[in-house]
Design a protein around this nucleic acid. Sequence first.
DNA 1: AAGCACACCTGCTAGC
DNA 2: TGCTAGCAGGTGTGCT
Length: 276
Amino acid sequence: MPELPEVETVRRDLEALVVGARVERVVVTGARTVRRTSAEAVRAGLEGRALVAAGRRGKYLCVTLDDGRWLVVHLRMSGQLLVADAPSAPLLAHTHVRLALDDGRELRFVDPRTFGEVVVVDPARLDDEAPGIASLGPEPLDIDVAGLTRVLRPRRRQLKALLTDQHVIAGIGNIYADEIAHAAGVRFDRLGASLTRPELARLHASMQSILTAAIGARGSTLSDAQYVDLGGLGGGYQEHHAVYDREGQPCLRCGRPVLRVAWSGRSTFFCRRCQR
DNA sequence: AAGCACACCTGCTAGC
DNA sequence: TGCTAGCAGGTGTGCT
């Protein structure tokens, strides 16, 4: 579910709502969620620790603890972090980890599909303890046109494969790859090596503007409402999607029906007229 | 290197 | 109404 804008929204919520609190007690009820290490390792790594900063790399949330280690959370497809005002607040189905905070609230990890992960790592040993983070490409909001050109141009792979490959650029998934390609007027299946300078400039500009606007709208929440923020509320950027999940509806630029194709086992939405 | 298929799970919806 | 197939925002592996 969540891509960079959604994860960034959760990061900001963590910063505003739980940074400064101390973890008093940890209850792990979902073994798969802590499969990277173990329930005991997560409990031991968190109990007694204060949460001192909330960071993000790609789609990974990295909460710095007062001993310098990181609480790393990846939401994958269906994970949610939620704050409950009291431990007695009703427990949602598929709640796998609960952090009781010293102010009486609870930070909860809920994840129906159990693809998500929670782990405590030493940031100096990411290669071993969080290889997914260690091998991430650059942050899309931090690179310039030259940087984007460096990662896309030498590749004989399709644009969407490159944009959604976390080793190439971090944080972009199925929704925003389609939105960025549409806004730039470039088809999803163009090879990286075929992109012209003006196209790369447009891709860069679209990447910045769409991700920034999506963060401003607190992310995209589709009809299944799987993505919600720390308070359980959905985002608003789905109202601004030009193509994603809009098969048959008019392209917002030219009015032609948006097309959907199966691409690499997933849906891709695009406009045949606006994207070349 | 790139591109598949498939695996990991649950839940919702469209279609019969 | 009730069943089933298909699909879902992500990533990793293993095979061609």
